[in-house]
C-alpha cells in the first residue's frame, strides 16, 4: 500500500494549506496521474487538479512530486516512492495556489506574452506560407517543442527570490523568435531581453533543464539568445560586459583575471556600481584573498591564442 501525501488547499473552508494522506494500492504500470485520478474517483471527489491528454502533450498536469516539478501523466508512480512508500504531491512552485494542486498561471502567461511570441516582419504576408529550410528550422526546433507546462517556472531558483525575472519558459519562447530566420525584429528583441529581468538574470542553476519534459530545455536556449545579443552588439549591460571581459581574459592569458572581471562587468564609467565593489574588495584585501596583481598566464598560452584566432574570436 502506498501513501500519497497531498498538499490540500481550499481558502473557502480553511485559510492555510495542509497535508492529507491517502492510501492506495498502485495498479501495475500506473502513472502518478492515474493514481491521483483513482484517489479523486474513489476516495475524495473534491481533490482538484488540472489534466487532459494523459500523454505528456497538453502540459496541464504539472505538479511537484517529492519536491520537484513533473508531469504527473509522464511519471510511473512506483518510481517516485520514497523509502517509506510515500509520494509527496504538491502544487507547482513560484505561482500562487488557487485550490489544491491548481495554481494561478497568470504571471506565467503575462511573461510569455511580454516577449512578443509571434512573428514580426516588415512586409505584408505572402500569398502562401512563409517558408523555412530544414536547416533554418533546426535552429528553433527545440524551443518550439515547449508545451507550456510551467515545470521550469516552478523550480527556477531565480524566480524564488525575484518575481520580475521573465523566467525559463518565456525566455525559451523568446529564442523561438530570436532564432527564426523569418523574424525581422532580432535586434529589438535581444535589446529588450538584455534588460534587467531578462537573459542575464539567469543563474545557471539548471533546474529548468532538469524539469523540462521536452527538448525545449530553456537554459540552453537562454545561452543561444545571449550569443545573439553579443553578436548584435547589445553590450551596454553588466551581463554582456561580464561575458566579454571573461572572454578577453581567457584570450590573453588562458585564464580568468578575477581582478578585472568585477570592474569591467560594472563598466568603467558606472561610478555607483564601482563603489558597490569597494566593501568586498577591501575585505578580500585584508584577508589577502585578492588574486595576485600580476596575472600569470597558463603555459603554452600561444596555442590558446591561436585557437581564438582560428575561430575568429
Amino acid at each position: 500500500m502506498a501513501t500519497f501525501r497531498i498538499k490540500r488547499y481550499n481558502p473557502e473552508i480553511k485559510p492555510e494549506p495542509y497535508y492529507e494522506d491517502f492510501q492506495l494500492e498502485i495498479p501495475e504500470g500506473a502513472t502518478l496521474l492515474d493514481c491521483i485520478n483513482q484517489i479523486k474517483w474513489t476516495l475524495d471527489g473534491t481533490l482538484t487538479y488540472r489534466m487532459s491528454c494523459r500523454s505528456a502533450i497538453c502540459g496541464s498536469c504539472g505538479m511537484k512530486a517529492n519536491g520537484h516539478a513533473q508531469l504527473a501523466c509522464q511519471k510511473q508512480a512506483t518510481s517516485l516512492l520514497d523509502k517509506n512508500d510515500t509520494i509527496t504531491v504538491e502544487p507547482l512552485g513560484n505561482m500562487e495556489p488557487v485550490k489544491d494542486l491548481v495554481v494561478d498561471f497568470e504571471p506565467f502567461w503575462d511573461k510569455v506574452n511580454k516577449i512578443k511570441p509571434y512573428l514580426q516582419t516588415d512586409d505584408s504576408p505572402p500569398k502562401k506560407e512563409r517558408t523555412q529550410s530544414p536547416d533554418q528550422f533546426h535552429l528553433i526546433d527545440d524551443a518550439s517543442t515547449c508545451i507550456m507546462c510551467g515545470n521550469c517556472y516552478s523550480d527556477c531558483n531565480v524566480l524564488e527570490v525575484d518575481d520580475k525575472f521573465l523566467g525559463p519558459a518565456a525566455l525559451a519562447k523568446a529564442q523561438r523568435f530570436v532564432g527564426d530566420s523569418r523574424d525581422e525584429r532580432t535586434l529589438e528583441r535581444v535589446t529588450e531581453l538584455s534588460e534587467p529581468g531578462g537573459i542575464w538574470d539567469c543563474t545557471h542553476c539548471g533546474e529548468c533543464v532538469e524539469r523540462c519534459p521536452k527538448p525545449a530545455q530553456p537554459f540552453y536556449r537562454i545561452k543561444e539568445v545571449m550569443a545573439v545579443a553579443l553578436e548584435q552588439g547589445v553590450h551596454n549591460n553588466n551581463g554582456a560586459r561580464h561575458a566579454l571581459s571573461f572572454v578577453k581574459s581567457v584570450k590573453s592569458s588562458g585564464r580568468l583575471n578575477e581582478n578585472m572581471i568585477p570592474v569591467e562587468s560594472m563598466g568603467y564609467f558606472n561610478i555607483k556600481g564601482l563603489m558597490e565593489l569597494i566593501p568586498i574588495g577591501l575585505r578580500m584585501l585584508l584577508k589577502r584573498k585578492i588574486p595576485p596583481i600580476i596575472h600569470k598566464s597558463i603555459e603554452d598560452v600561444k596555442d590558446v591564442k591561436r585557437i581564438f584566432k582560428e575561430l575568429g574570436q
Binding site: L230, A243, V247, V250, I298, E299, D300, L311, Q313
Partner: peptide, 26 residues
C-alpha cells in the same frame, strides 16, 4: 595541468560555444 585553459565557466560559451568546446577538448 599547467597548460590547460580555463573551462570558460559557461561564460565563454555565451559568446561562442565552439570556442569553449575547443578549449576544453584541448
Amino acid at each position: 595541468m599547467k597548460s590547460a585553459a580555463c573551462c570558460g565557466a559557461g561564460v565563454v560559451g555565451e559568446k561562442s560555444s565552439i570556442l569553449a568546446d575547443t578549449l576544453n577538448a584541448r
